[in-house]
Design a protein around this nucleic acid. Structure first.
Lengths: 209, 209
DNA sequence: TAGATTGTTAATCGATTAACAATC
DNA sequence: TAGATTGTTAATCGATTAACAATC
């Protein structure tokens, strides 16, 4: 096992590995070789072995990988078993859609609460998650120390809200506001979701085919 | 200008260039050098010039780039001015959120119609887009020839629906179903949006900080 | 003109792939 | 055991960065 900085390329492949292994696991597949996994994922067996070697030795010569085991190992690397707590800030349509459809528990996130400013939403429940007033956010965070915030609020409040949340101790932002957030505070991470980028990539591809 | 295959790395940076240039444009900035753009975007000036050189010569020695012009050029490369037509298939919460919040027009997509199976939704209007019965989909596509379909339907119908849509002539899928879609048909492209991947990347990062 | 900044070529760096000894 | 397949080292390939002549 190599001990060096893990490249972004590798990190971004991990969730995909996890998805495929989870799928195999749910189908009851017991073992798989880097070769056949590579075939399914359209990548080389070499790359899979190289990637995994950054984190340890999970296979066995002549056998391959045990699906359940490798799935668990990659899940562990991704922090799925850390019991991270997450809150949803902004319960408009997008926040609503995520609360309704996204299985936070499946990737190890415990979702406690959602927050909104709109009086009609406060007190209602989506998929067992209660929507609270945004005014309760500071005391809530102080008490329960969630790790990550899903940001589905209007653009104009995004950065200032993020700054407040960072002050309160939030360390990760799953940011759907289309504003590129940033901070000076170390140890805080953003995943900025830019829907428009993927649609433009698609636009590019169909434009020259 | 180099004439060669454009790498995926370059293609995926184009939408980001467009976003930054659009922002500068809206702020009324007239010109920018590769150096100062690179500073803003946290990439090297060299990379910007190298990337742009795949598509033409858009700058001027001693001056830099005209923001409005470069924005328009990259928009053109991305196919923003092709007047692509797009439909939304599935008007649940996520489809609803996209119809409500996403500015399709801003990236050159004309959104005509949305489709759902649920009787309560059929006939209603979100943001000027009428939701039609999914039964009308074939005749609609035949008549209006949309290019791209946004897929926000349940997982179990995703692939079969995609196959049907491909038969009808749809060439691009903005796929939010979390099913990795594919086809043998050439000239058809998928952008598979995996929310879970980005959240897991975030999980990874906060887990080791 | 002089200074600034491009587009492009060459150099470097890193990521992917190939090869293979080790071993289950 | 023999065959299969790993983990790792070396080779290749491609992407990023640096350098600079061209020129606005």
């Amino acid at each position: 096992m190599k001990r060096q900085k893990i490249s972004d390329a590798v990190i971004h492949r991990l969730p995909r590995y996890y998805r495929y292994l989870d799928d195999l696991y749910n189908k009851g597949v017991e073992r798989i070789s880097s070769n056949s996994l590579g075939l399914r994922m359209s990548i080389t067996a070499s790359q899979i072995r190289q990637d995994l070697s950054c984190f340890g030795e999970f296979g066995q010569q002549g056998y391959g990988y045990n699906v359940a085991e490798l799935r668990a190992e990659i899940g562990h690397i991704l922090g799925i078993d850390n019991g991270h707590r997450i809150i949803v800030v902004g319960a408009g349509h997008l926040g609503h859609a995520l609360l309704q459809n996204f299985d936070f528990g499946k990737v190890g996130f415990q979702i406690d609460s959602a927050f909104d400013r709109s009086p009609e939403l406060i007190g209602t429940t989506i998929h067992d998650v209660t929507i609270r007033s945004i005014d309760e956010l500071p005391s809530y965070v102080e008490q329960y120390h969630p790790d990550v915030a899903v940001l589905t609020v209007p653009q104009n409040v995004a950065q200032s809200l993020a700054d407040q949340l960072i002050d309160m101790g939030i360390r990760g932002f799953w940011n759907f506001t289309n504003v590129e957030l940033s901070t000076q505070v170390p140890g805080v991470f953003f995943e900025n979701i830019h829907f428009v980028d993927t649609l433009l990539t698609l636009s590019y591809r169909i434009s020259r085919s």
